[in-house]
Amino acid sequence: MKNRLKVLRAERDWTQAQLAAELEVSRQTVNALETGKFDPSLPLAFRIARLFQMRVEEVFQDEEL
């Protein structure tokens, strides 16, 4: 699954640590999400989308589509 997390974070000039704090996850989790090593659970995906005031599908895209 692809995501635009790194771009969205950079647009807002946030650090990984700040984003991690907002999402209440570890900085390592944010890094793993950004590098595509780890896919979030549905609740975390919705939390991310809500934080960026976007829809889930605007943040995450299925690579097979």
Binding site: Q18, L19, A21
Partner: peptide, 17 residues
């Protein structure tokens, strides 16, 4: 995101510790 919210707001790390 409010800048006054520091990374210490992250509940994960202290709770994990």
């Amino acid at each position: 995101m409010n800048d006054s919210k520091s990374p210490t707001r992250c509940a994960g790390a202290p709770r994990d510790r």
